[in-house]
Write a protein that binds this DNA or RNA. Structure first.
Lengths: 354, 354
DNA sequence: GTGAAAGCGCTAACAA
DNA sequence: TTGTTAGCGCTTTCAC
């Protein structure tokens, strides 16, 4: 098969409309200072010929590449995909960002990068050199990596940081983690829980501390003590087991536990089972992260629902708006998570055990 | 921020190595007829400068775009993403194709296209004009759409059709649906089921008929009658309800049902519940599609595990190999699905009801 | 085996 | 407001 060049190019359109290339270019890019009549004429030719500009050529001439990179942690992402547990972070990102990109002619490319690798810089630079994306959407833990931020800023690529509020370049976006933790805690307080444990996420993630802060705030507001109620975790199932055991083994164990993600929530359920505690009667459990595994559990878990798609859409919009020179909107932008109340939270059977 | 051009270009490398652009280009593209010494010298400069070729420029000059489009049905994909039930078809596709692409410098772009739209042709042509991908991976139902196949062939773009064996251009790949249906049926026969129902998938999908064929073949081999045991479905939950009710309402109802996807399997479970049938004692159920919803069910369902990642990887390899001019391997390629035996299949309590 | 020239499709800068 | 020119970074001829 012969190597095909572009079927219809800007030249064809220009010839067809009887104008210069430049005029066609101006119409394509919706530039000002073109007579309405011209726009109409050119647009008619574009439609008739079915012309679509070549992204590569646009990129070459120093314009936009219409490409946005969705940067995710390689190890985590591949592990999630392999596990087939329904973790749909990437899907939700695609859902949000692709739908936001489509009307502007942008595309999203999922790019996986090693977090802990020392050549993360080289990997990212290679992707940038190869694709020259107009923007990059960073997810935790990349979003709080100053090496990445610095590199992108220096390259003049606009980017959005999801789940980070650290000072520095780039748009910052959150899902209101502190508020969400507060929401979850308050829900439990309303159910008359007094001892509410929290299994924290990995300290490598900024949002882990926000969740702790939200929980602390809600507890303080209700004049409840947090002592012995905070356990470390790192988002892994194993760390959840350790943390849940620690919480439930203390002198005055909690009647409710908030786990900072789905894996640790599942681990908490497992520990409850091994201790003969029934959920939710003996122990209420809330999961941060409303994944299928959480929803299909028996009982289905009360969970914090993170608006990943919405945040990703906003991230894409911010990046596109910046390029277009339009009003960029607010940053930091917070799109609050909500609480889905299900069957794993209830009034405690023994409000004050032991 | 100043619009940044490529940091390191082929010119820099050429100057650094003291050779012509052409020689650098030859080294990049691993062309023959370059002295080993030259290759080494150029490669050293490339490494030292951290040079990565611009995909856009490569595309412009008539070479490869290093882009592969993963074409999926828009409506279905977005519905799955929104439903958040853990359907991970796209994830598995990405897992397989991205990992296969990475070593060759290729990227994958997920593209959603309306199946039933009359401007599907325009949509696809627009994507091709904009990106000029080196290849396209088609999934059902696109993979069996002759309009799409014809268009891609005419554009000289290599493509792989997953789940289609229809004559025509493009590589064809399957997950051995007939064999998988046979496997599932034989598993039930071994458990001494004699009346095994099948809920078919949408007739718009070629693979629906393959599954029927596999079931029929296994039944015939065991000298079992298929009468009244085949019900129509269209992969939707609703159609599964209708089909399951029909099967279970007939004069000699089945003791086992194979549903052609997860949704219809769930529907079958629901109908079993409403009829007071216990699974697996009164009714065995097998799902085609091993999604989280199936795995997390109580009881977890015996299911056909489709090697989506493997097939997608193979599809990407075929496309890349064709470009590279290497041995392309076989087409049609079949990567057989397997059967995960879980708790929804057992020896029937009443081998011959009524 | 290596290099020089032309051009891919488009836009920035400038001119008219 | 519109058109002309030059050039983006690379690969394809075609010379040498």
């Amino acid at each position: 098969m012969a190597r095909q060049r572009q079927a219809v190019t800007i030249k064809h359109v220009a010839a067809d409309a009887g104008v210069s290339l430049q005029t066609v270019s101006r119409v394509i890019n919706k530039e000002p200072n073109v007579r309405a009549e011209m726009i109409e004429r050119v647009q008619a030719s574009i439609d008739r010929l079915g012309y679509v500009p070549s992204i590569a050529a646009q990129r070459m001439s120093g314009s936009r590449s219409y490409l946005i990179l969705a940067l995710n942690d390689r190890e985590r992402t591949i592990a999630d995909w392999r596990a087939r547990q329904g973790t749909d972070w990437v899907d939700q990102m695609l859902l949000g960002s692709m739908l936001a990109c489509a009307p502007h002619g942008y595309r999203v490319i999922v790019e996986l990068v090693d977090t802990h690798s020392d050549h993360i810089e080289r990997e990212l630079l290679a992707a940038i050199a190869a694709l020259r994306p107009d923007g990059v959407i960073l997810t935790p833990p990349h979003s709080q990596n100053p090496v990445i931020s610095g590199l992108l800023a220096q390259q003049g690529i606009s980017f959005a940081r999801i789940g980070s509020l650290a000072e520095g370049p780039g748009f910052t976006l959150t899902m209101g983690d502190e508020g969400a933790a507060r929401l979850a805690t308050e829900h439990l307080i309303e159910l008359r829980h007094r001892r509410i444990g929290l299994i924290a996420g990995s300290p490598e993630y900024e949002l882990s501390s926000w969740r702790i802060a939200g929980w602390r705030a809600a507890m303080a507001q209700a004049s409840l003590n947090c002592e012995q109620l905070l356990a470390d975790g790192d988002f892994s199932y194993g760390s959840g087991l350790v943390a849940a055991r620690q919480l439930l083994a203390c002198s005055r164990p909690p009647t409710a536990i908030i786990a900072s993600n789905d894996q640790m929530a599942m681990a908490t359920l497992s520990v409850a089972r091994e201790k003969g505690l029934s959920v939710p009667d003996d122990l209420s459990v809330i999961s941060f992260d409303d994944t299928p595994i959480v929803r299909f559990n028996h009982p289905p878990l009360t969970a914090v629902v993170q608006p990943i798609a919405e945040v990703s859409a906003r991230a894409a919009e911010l990046i596109i708006a910046e390029r277009t020179g339009k009003d960029v909107g607010d940053s930091p932008a917070a799109i609050p998570a909500t609480l889905a109340i299900r069957k794993s939270t209830a009034v405690p059977r023994n409000p004050m055990p032991v």
